[in-house]
Simulated assay, not measured.
Amino acid sequence: MFVILMFAVIIGAVFSFGAMVQAYAGDANTTSVSKSGAKGSTYSVQTKVAEKVIVQRGDTLWDIATEHVVMGGNVRSYVNQLLTINHLQSSQLHEGQVLLLP
């Protein structure tokens, strides 16, 4: 009887741990921090983790912008954002280069 009880406790602990990990995992693209103030007020901060793209042979900034811009968005504006975010002085890309996406 004791062995069955211990087995049940261990199984329960394993499943509980899995549920806690899932609950705290959240979205893979965001990091969330919550804090409580001295008077019981709560605030939350979320930061988005930047997406990246690896430049393939023949890729251009225009191609990358066209592929990743929000539907109906301005491709030229997205190209300018790519230039700014990645500190690029020109639109010349190199195979294997990693670009951060806006």
Rank of each mutant, 00 (worst) to 15 (best):
K39D: 15
E51Y: 01
S44Q: 10
A19L: 02
G73A: 10
S16K: 09
V55Y: 00
Q97G: 08
V14H: 09
S36T: 15
D59I: 10
S77R: 06
G58D: 10
G18T: 08
Q92N: 07
M20C: 05
V98M: 12
Q46W: 05
G26A: 08
G58K: 10
A28H: 10
G18A: 13
G72D: 13
Q46L: 07
S41K: 04
T47H: 14
H68G: 14
Y24H: 01
V55F: 03
G26R: 05
E67M: 11
L83C: 01
M1T: 03
S44A: 06
A19M: 04
A65N: 05
V49P: 04
T60E: 08
T47I: 11
E67G: 07
A19K: 04
Y78A: 11
D59W: 01
G12I: 02
A65S: 11
V21G: 11
A19Q: 06
K52E: 15
G18V: 05
M6Y: 07
V55N: 01
G40T: 14
W62E: 01
V21Y: 14
V14S: 09
I10F: 03
S32Q: 12
G40Q: 13
L88F: 01
G18I: 05
T66G: 09
V9W: 04
T42V: 14
I4G: 07
V69L: 02
F2W: 11
K48V: 15
F7S: 13
V69S: 00
V14C: 10
Y78N: 08
H68P: 12
I85G: 02
N86M: 00
T60L: 04
L5Y: 08
V53G: 00
V69N: 03
L100K: 06
T30E: 12
G73D: 08
K48Q: 11
T66H: 00
Q81E: 09
L100S: 11
R76T: 14
W62K: 02
Q89S: 07
L5E: 06
G26V: 08
E51V: 10
N74D: 08
M71D: 13
G18M: 15
T66I: 02
H68A: 15
M1E: 08
P102D: 00
H94M: 13
A28T: 02
T31R: 13
E67T: 05
Q89N: 10
A8I: 06
L83Q: 00
H87P: 11
A8T: 05
I4D: 03
M71I: 09
W62A: 00
N80A: 09
Q97Y: 01
V53D: 02
M71W: 03
V9A: 04
Y78F: 03
K39V: 02
F7A: 14
N86Y: 00
K52R: 11
I10R: 03
A38S: 13
G96T: 08
R57S: 09
R76K: 09
Q46K: 07
I11V: 05
I85A: 01
S32T: 07
V98F: 02
S32M: 06
Y24V: 07
Q92A: 06
S16N: 09
T84A: 12
I64R: 01
A19G: 05
N80D: 15
G73C: 08
F15Q: 13
K39A: 15
A19R: 04
S32E: 15
